[in-house]
Design a binder for these strands. Structure first.
Length: 294
DNA sequence: CTTCTTGTTACTGA
DNA sequence: ATCAGTAACAAGAA
């Protein structure tokens, strides 16, 4: 699922590909993907261009060249943003291909049965917004609404504000467990289920520990591990567990580096004694080693 | 058939 | 206020 490292990989990939290109057409194949006024969306996008692409947590923010407007894009669980240089796609008037054994098999044919939105650029290239589960969205906002959205997020792991002092503040006076705090986007931006488990494992902290029981050293370990795990995952272009692909349609390689997630029943790679356990913590499937995560 | 999967929000009750 | 738990959203896999 796209978490910070995956969304950052997509942002990075799109930066060099779509910024500055004139959008000549937009095809809305699933109208519900657009939050708010659909007409406003189409009028704004057409004959405009993306001037820059930002990210906070798992949220992408496209700045338009004309008009002081922004497009927020959230991939939720199965969203994909795939850019394709060529292809035999006629600009405008896209229709979904029929669902046949052929199209179903080739998930990477574009557009496919999960394509919800297509931006067509003047040079003939296209940006496909696919989403199997239909939870992903785009939303046009002004500067004020953009700032409000950003303000709702906690400290961003790749920013200057991600310091040990600020990280400690997040845990102060709380009673929630570690997993719940790591997943809370209003406290720390961008961590999802996979990396929450990996961070707890790396820090040797059991995810169901109440944060008010953590020692200063344990909080520091979680801080160091958060930064380390997220940067490693970005280096590997994210984790493809199921649907995630980057802006070029390529899978991430970080799945080979996961140490606990999806390893239920396997022997712990670190202590080689414990068997990875999976239980429900903070309402999420959580994998951890009881032997070496205290 | 049932159960599980995950990001986020909304709602309940403690 | 804070927290835990759960339903909802939707479409799949197992």
């Amino acid at each position: 699922m796209p978490e910070l490292p995956e969304v950052e990989t997509i942002r990075n990939g799109l930066q060099n590909k779509v910024v500055g290109k004139k959008i000549s057409a937009v095809d809305v194949l699933f109208p519900k993907i657009i939050q708010g006024d659909k007409k406003e969306f189409e009028i704004l996008v057409k004959n405009n261009f993306f001037e820059d692409i930002f990210r906070i947590g798992k949220l992408l923010i496209f700045k338009f060249g004309k008009g002081d407007k922004y497009l927020l894009a959230h991939l939720k669980m199965t969203g994909q943003l795939i850019y394709q240089e060529d292809g035999n796609i006629v600009v405008g008037g896209h229709k979904l291909p029929p669902v046949t054994a052929e199209t179903k098999k080739d998930f990477y044919d574009l557009p496919n049965k999960y394509t919800r939105l297509i931006f067509s650029f003047a040079d003939g290239s296209n940006l496909f917004f696919n989403d199997l589960r239909k939870f992903a969205y785009v939303k046009v906002v002004d500067k004020q609404e953009r700032d409000a959205a950003v303000a709702g997020y906690g400290i961003e792991p790749l920013s200057k504000e991600f310091t040990l002092v600020n990280f400690k503040k997040v845990f102060e006076g709380k009673k929630k467990n570690v997993k719940a705090v790591l997943l809370d986007q209003s406290l720390i931006a961008g961590i999802g289920n996979i990396y929450a488990d990996e961070i707890c494992f790396d820090a040797k902290v059991c995810p169901d520990r109440s944060v008010n029981s953590l020692s200063t050293q344990e909080i520091k370990a979680l801080y160091v591990s958060s930064e380390k795990i997220i940067k490693e995952a970005i280096k590997n272009k994210g984790t493809t567990f199921r649907d995630y692909v980057d802006a070029s349609g390529q899978k991430g390689k970080h799945i080979d580096f996961l140490k606990v997630y999806n390893r239920k029943g396997e022997k712990c790679l670190r202590c080689k004694k414990g068997i990875i356990k999976k239980s429900k913590i903070a309402g999420r499937g959580t994998s951890y080693c009881e032997e070496c995560q205290k």
